[in-house]
Design a protein around this nucleic acid. Structure first.
Length: 434
DNA sequence: TCTGGGGTCCTAGGACCC
DNA sequence: TCTGGGGTCCTAGGACCC
């Protein structure tokens, strides 16, 4: 038996944890560079501010309803996310929790008697809110896909005008999978709300008369497999109660690391562009070392602003395979420079750059190279660098190639403090003497 | 003026092998 | 008129997720 615990309006809820006076205020959180809306509080959703909306398009709504605007603060969200998941792992067991994303976790509840499931989840929900300040919804189902469907329904119930005490938890598991009442619930769920059905599949399925989760559950396997592949078929089987996606608790080694950002202002020169690429490479290398990995391949990509069709457009990327896998920032920056030299074209206004590290291997399982000259010096230097940056914040110690003034740096005009992860930004309490 | 960032998995097709 | 069959590996592109 699976449950999906989903944090409600997560980024907006995080902003409220340390600003309780904003409990009823509409809130939006913006993407890096303050470009578009990536999270909304319930009040902001009710105002009709769409997910992903460009800020300049919803500015009138923001001003009219005095919506509180925040720049994304992923350090804060990551820290609160860890607190929520630690609590789950303590309440259940680390082996029963799969951290699926920054704000969601699948839980294996097969150790509980079915009649206790809902009460257990209610208690978990209450405790999470009390201990972390984050409101959550929980869905229960025989498979992950059904638990996801249930979580969606739980969230809807939680924000009804008069939520009942049982809102915020929804179980599909108290009903057998081929029961009419479970089917009647699935018949209310639009096909695009199912986990795994995206914006491409939705119109294709609708064109075949598949409008709801119920329609998909009873669709023809052979047709779906031939036309759409095995991934969709797994989703269908999960709707029928057959587990195709077991709980993944061992954290698998990741396969790529990306660092890409759009610029605060357009960049034209090679020097400025290289500064950005060096900065992103340094950040990605840091992540690489955090996970004890080395990269065998690096890709650099650059592009102009695709939203300005009247300007000359250009996009390109180039990859280099390193002679020996590396986690050394200078080595990777050097390779990134070669990539950029390969694709840079003078005369364009660049809007975004990114780097991608691939062919990641564990440092502990590295293949020795016959001609390699091992450098212990590098390992010590990188370790020291990471320690300093962990303690004083990202980018406190940088490579000169990352630049000093950095005019291209992203805009973050409304970032809240990292209340819970930086000493100098911790909340202050003023006590007034009576 | 202003439109995100970081991931995974699957499939088709080409290149190559014997 | 007719031009093998079976296999692996790699890559690009497309789909999805949050």
């Amino acid at each position: 038996m699976f449950a999906l615990l989903d944090c409600n309006n997560f980024f907006a809820s995080c902003e409220r944890v340390f600003r309780p006076e904003l409990a009823k205020t509409p809130i939006v959180v913006l993407s890096n560079n303050d470009g578009c809306v990536i999270a909304r509080s319930q009040e902001a959703k009710a105002l009709g501010i769409a997910m992903g909306a460009a800020v300049h398009l919803v500015r009138p709504l923001i001003q009219r309803y005095q919506v509180r605007v925040f720049s994304a603060n992923f350090e804060l969200y990551g820290d609160l996310s860890n607190r929520v998941f630690s609590l789950l792992q303590e309440s259940l067991s680390p082996k029963a929790v799969e951290i699926y994303s920054i704000d969601e976790a699948f839980l294996d509840l097969s150790m509980l008697e079915p009649r206790l499931l809902v009460d257990f989840c209610q208690e978990l929900r209450r405790q999470t809110h009390q201990w972390t300040g984050i409101p959550v919804s929980i869905g229960i189902g025989q498979t992950k896909t059904l638990a996801k469907v249930a979580a969606g329904l739980a969230k809807k119930n939680a924000y009804k005008p008069n939520p009942s005490t049982h809102s915020g938890v929804f179980s599909l598991a108290t009903l057998p999978c081929h029961n009419d009442s479970q089917d009647s619930i699935l018949a209310q769920v639009p096909v695009q709300d199912i986990w795994g059905i995206g914006f491409r599949l939705t119109p294709a399925l609708q064109g075949r008369g598949i409008q709801t989760a119920y329609d998909l559950k009873y669709a023809d396997d052979a047709v779906l497999l031939k036309r759409y592949g095995s991934t969709l078929l797994r989703t269908v089987w999960e709707l029928r109660g057959t587990i195709c996606y077991p709980l993944k608790t061992t954290c698998s080694v990741r396969k790529s690391i990306v660092c890409s950002r759009s610029f605060g202002q357009m960049v034209e020169s090679f020097t400025d562009l290289m500064q950005a690429v060096a900065t992103y490479t340094a950040r990605a290398s840091e992540k690489l070392r955090e996970d004890g990995l080395q990269a065998g391949c690096i890709t650099v990509s650059i592009r102009t602003n695709r939203f300005r069709p009247d300007e000359k457009q250009y996009r390109a990327s180039h990859s280099i395979r390193l002679p020996v896998p590396s986690d050394d920032t200078p080595t990777l920056i050097q390779a990134a420079r070669q990539c950029l030299e390969h694709i840079y074209q003078h005369g364009f206004l660049y809007h975004k750059a990114g780097i991608l590290l691939q062919e990641l291997t564990l440092l502990s399982a590295r293949q020795q190279d016959l001609f390699e000259v091992p450098s212990e010096h590098s390992a010590v230097l990188m370790k020291t660098l990471d320690k300093l940056n962990r303690h004083h914040g990202h980018g406190s110690i940088r490579f000169a190639s990352e630049g000093l003034t950095r005019p291209w740096w992203m805009k973050q005009s409304h970032r809240s403090p990292c209340y819970s992860s930086r000493w100098e930004e911790r909340p202050r309490i003023q006590v007034q003497a009576l």
